[in-house]
Computed example of a mutant assay.
Amino acid sequence: MIVLLAAAAVFALDVYAVVLVLLRAAVYRVHLYRPMLVNLGLSFVPVPLSLVAGFGFLLFVHYRSHPLESASVLEGVLAVMALALPTCAWLLMFPNSVYLITELNFSHRVENTPVPLWYDIVQTLALTLSGIANAILSLAPLQMFVIIGQQNGNQVTVESWVFSGVVILLGAVGVYLGRYLRFNSWDVRHPVSMARKLSSHLRERGKGLEALGFVITHATLVALLYVPLFLFAWGSLVAAGL
Rank of each mutant, 00 (worst) to 15 (best):
K197F: 14
V173E: 07
V166H: 00
H190Q: 15
T157M: 01
H218W: 13
A172H: 09
V173C: 11
H190V: 08
F183T: 11
L177V: 06
S200C: 10
Q151E: 10
L202H: 03
M144V: 14
R203G: 12
L170Q: 02
W186G: 00
I147E: 08
V156P: 11
A172F: 14
S199Q: 13
L169Y: 15
V158R: 14
K207I: 06
Q150R: 13
F145A: 11
W186R: 01
L169T: 05
P141D: 05
R205A: 04
V166I: 07
I147M: 10
G208L: 10
V175G: 01
R182M: 04
T157W: 02
G165P: 02
G171E: 07
Q150W: 11
K207C: 02
V162W: 11
S160R: 12
P191L: 05
L221K: 08
Q151A: 14
E159P: 15
G178I: 03
F163D: 01
R205N: 09
G178D: 03
R205L: 02
P141G: 00
H201G: 10
I168S: 08
L198V: 13
A195F: 10
S193E: 12
H201M: 03
L170E: 06
G171P: 05
D187V: 04
G165C: 02
A140C: 03
G153F: 11
N184G: 07
L181R: 01
G171D: 03
E210G: 13
F145T: 10
W161T: 11
G174P: 10
A219P: 14
L198A: 09
S199A: 08
L212M: 06
N154D: 15
S160A: 04
R203H: 10
K207L: 02
N152Q: 10
G206E: 00
K207M: 02
T220V: 09
F163T: 01
L170G: 08
S199F: 09
I216Q: 02
G171F: 03
L181K: 01
V146F: 09
R203Q: 14
L142A: 00
Y180N: 00
Y176T: 01
